[in-house]
């Protein structure tokens, strides 16, 4: 049985999460959401909170390589697991991940608020389907809302990142 402690405010837990390859460890309330853990305890604010109801996808990160909505996961569910955030995607500080580069090239963003989640969802999509059709890209990103772009340039960016020709 996992060790836990009770208190007047409910249980607290010591958790260790590998975030972007780095070990992190904090004593958190059991009700701590993963997105708050990442932003406030670990200090990585690239993961945005949008709707806070698991609809918009702005908080999308990877848990053990799969896209998840970090506003709908408890931090303790990620205990002992690998989390990748938008900060962990680029290979180095002066080089973008191919998906980030494609979003830049195809202008797949306007205000940028949805972009971290959109990029993380898109990377997970290509991990599962390396050469998606345009329809598969649109369906694969159904969990991520963008209120600026109308999605067309985002879809182009994902197709470009998959190495497929992009129609203008």
């Amino acid at each position: 049985m996992f060790v836990f402690r009770t208190g007047i405010l409910g249980g607290r837990v010591d958790i260790s999460v590998t975030v972007n390859g780095e070990p992190t460890s904090h004593d958190v309330e059991a009700r701590r959401l993963l997105v708050h853990y990442l932003r406030e305890d670990v200090g990585l604010t690239g993961t945005n909170i949008g709707c806070d109801t698991s609809s918009c996808g702005a908080c999308t990160v990877h848990l053990n390589g799969e896209s998840v909505k970090s506003c709908t996961l408890l931090a303790v569910q990620a205990d002992g697991q690998d989390v990748t955030t938008i900060e962990g995607l680029a290979p180095s500080s002066d080089e973008l991940h191919p998906m980030q580069e494609a979003f830049r090239q195809e202008h797949g963003l306007q205000c940028g608020y949805c972009t971290p989640g959109m990029v993380m969802a898109a990377v997970s999509l290509l991990d599962e389907n390396a050469k998606p059709t345009e329809l598969e890209v649109r369906q694969g990103l159904e969990g991520n809302l963008c209120r600026c772009t109308g999605y067309h340039n985002i879809v182009k960016a994902v197709l470009a990142a998959s190495g497929q020709p992009v129609k203008d």
Binding site: M1, G10, A30
Partner: peptide
């Protein structure tokens, strides 16, 4: 939005749960 406080148990098996 944050859930109300609760105690957390991680089950290791169906029997444990």
């Amino acid at each position: 939005m944050i859930p109300a406080a609760f105690d957390y148990h991680r089950a290791t098996s169906a029997e444990d749960a």
